[in-house]
Amino acid sequence: MKQGNLAIFNNIYSFYRDGFRGMVLGKKLWAIILIKLFVMFFVLKIFFFPNYLNTNFSTSEEKGNHVLEQITRNASIK
């Protein structure tokens, strides 16, 4: 049973390994995907797109109160 599982694992591994090795155009496309993901997650997300609520408030209650404050700031309740 264990040997059977190992054989399946090996087959899957060699399937992907040979597939990636045999790529021609695919290598260029993977490079584009990886560069794109790097720029998105390690440049844009970190330096330009902080999550405003997560950065400024630590608990759900604080976030909820802030949004409630924002959406009622022009209320007249005197």
């Binding site: 997300k45 797109f49 959406i71």
Partner: peptide
């Protein structure tokens, strides 16, 4: 692929309410 993820970044930063 993943170009739509940027929309989710914008939600958190520009559209937090």
């Amino acid at each position: 692929v993943a170009t739509g993820i940027i929309l989710e970044f914008q939600f958190g930063t520009n559209w937090s309410n």
